[in-house]
Amino acid sequence: MEAVYVLAVSAALFGIGALGAIVHRSATRKLISLEIMFNAELLLFLTLSTIYAPLNGPILAIFIIALTGSEVGVIVPIIVLLYRKLGTVDVTRLGEGEEK
């Protein structure tokens, strides 16, 4: 199977994620879109690792997936804190100060 098929899927996921990250105003929706972009990158990384580094690629991918879990573990509490402070997760209203 040629790599171009998987790379095309990766590019499509990256584009969809980028579109979501630009148009959505909610911090959670932006996070979800960025996670779609992460999935696209992981797919690209593993596709290339089947060609160039079949053994070391998945080891690094394990670290990447675990670190993404920890990244979400920090960002989600920040969003919850933002919601508690402002009463909204609208990123365009971040500079307006406390609402409650």
Partner: peptide, 21 residues
């Protein structure tokens, strides 16, 4: 913008597309 970004992303990795998975 997203379409251009995806196209640029694909173009940058297209050189690898002839490789067999």
């Amino acid at each position: 913008t997203a379409a251009l970004l995806a196209l640029a992303y694909f173009a940058s990795i297209y050189v690898l597309s002839t490789a067999q998975v």
